[in-house]
């Protein structure tokens, strides 16, 4: 699953630590999300989408394959 977290974070001028604090996770979780090596829970995906004022589908891009 791809995501736009890095791009959206830059657009909102947020550091990884700031985003992590807003959604209540460790900074390394944001690092692994951005690297694409971790798929978040629905709850975390929802929290991240809320921070950026978008829907989950706009932040996380599901690969059909």
């Amino acid at each position: 699953m791809l995501n736009r977290i890095r791009e959206l974070r830059a657009r909102h001028n947020l550091s990884q630590l700031e985003l992590a604090r807003k959604v209540g996770v460790r900074r390394e979780t944001i690092v692994f999300l951005e690297k694409g090596t971790y798929n978040p829970s629905l709850k975390l995906a929802h929290a991240i989408a809320l921070v950026f004022g978008l829907t989950i589908e706009e932040v996380f891009l599901f690969d059909e394959q």
Binding site: R21, R26, R27, E28, K43
Partner: peptide
């Protein structure tokens, strides 16, 4: 270190 910078010591990633 997490405790000192006031972030959760465990979260869904670390537990998983």
């Amino acid at each position: 270190r997490s405790y000192r910078i006031n972030e959760p010591q465990e979260d869904e990633y670390s537990i998983r």
